[in-house]
Design a protein around this nucleic acid. Structure first.
Length: 352
DNA sequence: AAGCCGGGGGT
DNA sequence: ACCCCAGGCTT
């Protein structure tokens, strides 16, 4: 794009953003910490999903100091249902570093802010431009889609290397006068107008500067290669109830999928007799095999795998000492206070 | 560079 | 069924 057009493109984008932007909670603040929270929640997550979580989170943890030393289980409960739970662990680690190393002030340069846990190239640029007004690129999926069309770039955006092309493009195009509105304008345009399928080109404020609109095919961009196939795993989930009306639960491992979240007893599907024997032995209980009541069967899709779950309610006739520290019989009130992944919430919700 | 890490909504 | 979403970390 030639220089005169760059200036006009900036102006058109920023003017449109300032007039048409949605009223979102995190647009009422310029506190770097609060912008940070919003950006982490928005990673791979839609605006409408984030809004209630953001409001609750900021109300409870309005400052870096208030978040820094909150127990992890409480944070996971606040994050419950949002997904990608390592985000909140990393956020807290980063925030704690800000409190302890930077005196509570979020760094205002890319080198230092990028050292914080959970802050990658995008989040760094977003905080720097939105909270500090720095002319830094913030390239996410929206930006790559919009600019692939405006500049008619057909490089494969699934390749990490391709992102550098767009970072350089933004660095060249960005409005020094209002980096915040420019970066958010690109993303807002991607969310409202320059959508993945059927972009609303006739309503686009930068249509005049869009190469794909004039010389190419906006709908065919961006190019993205790799598509992943999910693996199928079948589980039987046993909701085991003791004489007190408490339920046997276990906490997942500290790392990996759904780390540190709680679940009912879950075993890979097998012959029913084998499953029950395995459960009885491992958790030192004797189950009433005469009365196994199906609760619900469903599929739960993750980004890289698919769970097929069948769940059952069964009474423990006898219970012994639980050998593992991460297992316990919990009351209804306790269960509703611990963080559980959505599949377990679904089973719990169908229990009564 | 590729795999891992959730969940929901749109088409 | 498939795609994508205000991505980052680990290997």
């Amino acid at each position: 794009m030639n220089y005169p057009y760059i200036k006009q493109f900036r102006k058109a984008l920023v003017t449109w953003y300032l007039e048409e932007q949605r009223d979102l909670p995190w647009r009422h603040t310029k506190e770097p910490y609060q912008i940070w929270v919003s950006e982490v929640m928005l990673q791979q997550t839609r605006v409408d999903t984030v809004i209630p979580y953001y409001n609750r989170f900021i109300e409870k943890y309005p400052t870096a100091e208030s978040l820094a030393y909150t127990p992890e289980e409480e944070l996971l409960k606040m994050w419950e249902g949002l997904g990608y739970y390592s985000r909140v662990r990393n956020l807290q680690a980063g925030v704690r570093e800000v409190v302890e190393v930077y005196g509570g002030k979020v760094p205002d340069n890319r080198v230092d802010i990028s050292k914080l846990k959970g802050v990658g190239p995008y989040t760094a640029g977003a905080i720097l431009s939105i909270a500090y007004g720095k002319p830094e690129h913030a390239v996410d999926g929206n930006v790559m889609r919009v600019l692939s069309r405006v500049l008619n770039i057909d490089a494969d955006i699934a390749l990490p290397k391709t992102k550098e092309i767009f970072e350089e493009a933004v660095t060249k195009l960005i409005d020094i006068e209002n980096p915040s509105a420019f970066n958010q304008g690109l993303m807002e345009l991607g969310a409202l107008i320059c959508t993945p399928t059927s972009p609303k080109c006739l309503l686009c404020p930068v249509r005049d500067y869009c190469t794909a609109f004039h010389e190419g095919n906006p709908s065919s961009l961006p190019v993205k290669s790799k598509k992943l196939k999910t693996k199928d795993i079948h589980y039987d989930v046993y909701v085991i109830r003791n004489k007190d009306g408490s339920y046997l639960m276990e906490k997942r491992m500290e790392e990996g999928l759904l780390a540190n979240m709680w679940q009912f007893i879950m075993v890979e599907r097998d012959e029913v007799e084998n499953s029950l024997t395995k459960v009885e032995k491992q958790y030192n209980v004797i189950l009433n095999r005469e009365l196994i009541e199906p609760i619900i069967s469903f599929k739960h899709v993750f980004s890289h795998l698919k769970w097929h779950i069948s769940s059952y309610l069964v009474d423990a006739i006898e219970t012994g000492e639980l050998s593992q520290l991460n297992t316990a019989f919990l009351t209804k009130e306790q269960i509703e206070s611990i963080p559980m992944p959505v599949p377990m919430l679904k089973i719990w919700g169908n229990l009564t």
